[in-house]
């Protein structure tokens, strides 16, 4: 990424207080695709025995990546809202490792964007979770 792109990426996350609070970083954005990472933080632990991050934090990461992918699609407007999001948890994320979500719009209509997302920790061959969702498409200005 160029310096300008990195600044734009940082501003994108900084504009979303909850994503900023979770320490999310935008890695890639463009053409209906977004990659966002979330570093490990002990405040996000959901299972006190194993120290694994709570599924809810992974949901927030998936939702942010999904929304970013929609906003980055050439046919979609600037704003979006989630209509539904389904997450499948394949395995616990390894404690201490950053989780990275990759989201893509696989179909966009005038009203709805359909999104798929995958989250991985440092072992990128075995996803931690996958998600599918529907997001609103903002009306294009007439």
């Amino acid at each position: 990424m160029t310096q300008d792109q990195m600044t734009a990426a940082r501003q994108f996350i900084d504009a979303i207080p909850h994503s900023r609070r979770l320490g999310m970083q935008l890695k890639e954005l463009g053409d209906g695709r977004a990659i966002i990472s979330m570093p490990y933080d002990s405040a996000l632990i959901g299972d006190p025995v194993t120290k694994v991050i709570h599924g809810g934090a992974v949901s927030a990461l998936m939702d942010t990546a999904g929304g970013a992918a929609v906003v980055a699609h050439p046919l979609a407007g600037l704003g979006t809202a989630t209509l539904d999001l389904r997450i499948d948890y394949m395995r616990p994320a390894t404690p201490g490792q950053t989780i990275t979500a990759t989201a893509e719009c696989y179909h966009v209509t005038r009203t709805v964007a359909f999104v798929r997302a995958t989250a991985c920790d440092e072992d990128t061959d075995r996803p931690v979770a996958t998600a599918t969702g529907a997001f609103t498409v903002a009306k294009a200005s007439p």
């Binding site: 979303i16 207080p17 909850h18 994503s19 979770l22 709570h54 599924g55 809810g56 934090a57 949901s59 927030a60 990461l61 998936m62 939702d63 942010t64 929304g67 809202a81 989630t82 999001l85 997450i87």
Partner: peptide, 11 residues
């Protein structure tokens, strides 16, 4: 944030 809502429901 939709993610905060999702996390709240999961908790």
């Amino acid at each position: 944030h939709g993610g905060a809502t999702a996390a709240f429901l999961e908790i």
